[in-house]
């Protein structure tokens, strides 16, 4: 536990002392701000604003955003040789991985939480007419979705010591896990299409959390993805001992 806490603390501190992390946060907040204004603008034409507009954007943006947060995590430790010191510390391999994952997820949570300010503004200007429960549900969904994306990103960071390669492969994987939701448009067999859809991250968000449905199966799906990805990452870290 001490190991997880220490690693987590270092990760969080390193996000907040690196210019890069601020740039990512700034970019995300800028784009979500523009989206929000657009969404409000449209709602003046008598269309109700979509309470899940910001989370919906994240669902797509995570394809690029999550790998940027995770590419460094293990690839850099390997390249700098610090992984050797971590692996010779009295800390288990799993606490190293879990501490790092928790750091990345916490940073994502902070950025996501800041965007919730839009919902508060919306609630104010609509005089309580917005569906806050729907928005909250979408936020819970996208929070879990983000965790799953970060866990996928970590696998690639552990698999290579080149950060660019790690980010590129993670983006490709996340893109497939996103676009797969639309597989029905190209595969006529409904059962095959449904099976593939069930495997994608997007389908477990878009047709439930995003429309205000909080379903246990989707929560379990995301938690399961996170667990499996972290397990693979731990095994990959461990494999450094066998080279």
């Amino acid at each position: 536990m001490n190991g997880v806490r220490t690693i987590f603390g270092r990760e969080i501190a390193s996000y907040f002392t690196s210019l890069f992390a601020y740039l990512i946060a700034a970019a995300v907040l800028l784009i979500t701000g523009i989206l929000f204004i657009n969404n409000i603008g449209r709602s003046q034409d008598q269309v109700a604003p979509n309470p899940a507009a910001i989370p919906d954007f994240f669902a797509f943006a995570l394809i690029f955003f999550a790998p940027l947060l995770t590419m460094r995590l293990l690839a850099e430790e390997r390249r700098e040789g610090t992984l050797e010191l971590l692996l010779t510390s009295p800390t288990s391999d799993s606490s190293i991985v879990i501490g790092k994952f928790a750091g990345a997820w916490a940073y994502y949570t902070i950025i996501l939480a800041i965007t919730f300010v839009y919902q508060v503004i919306l609630l104010n200007i609509s005089q309580g007419q917005t569906d806050l429960a729907h928005a909250l549900c979408a936020y819970i969904g996208i929070w879990l979705y983000g965790g799953a994306c970060l866990a996928v990103g970590m696998v690639f960071s552990a698999a290579t010591d080149n950060q660019i390669v790690a980010a590129f492969l993670a983006s490709a994987a996340l893109f497939l896990l996103w676009i797969g939701d639309r597989v029905g448009e190209v595969i006529p067999n409904i059962n095959v299409a449904r099976f593939i859809r069930e495997l994608t991250l997007q389908s477990h968000y878009a047709s439930s959390f995003a429309v205000g449905l909080l379903r246990a199966e989707d929560i379990v799906f995301f938690a399961g993805i996170i667990a499996v990805m972290l397990f693979i990452t731990i095994r990959l870290v461990e494999s450094n001992r066998w080279r």
Binding site: S18, E80, G81, L83, E84, L85
Partner: peptide, 15 residues
């Protein structure tokens, strides 16, 4: 019980 310094000094440049 071990203090270890590998051949290539492992550092975190941003700390």
């Amino acid at each position: 019980r071990v203090g270890y310094l590998p051949e290539r000094v492992p550092l975190y440049p941003d700390m």
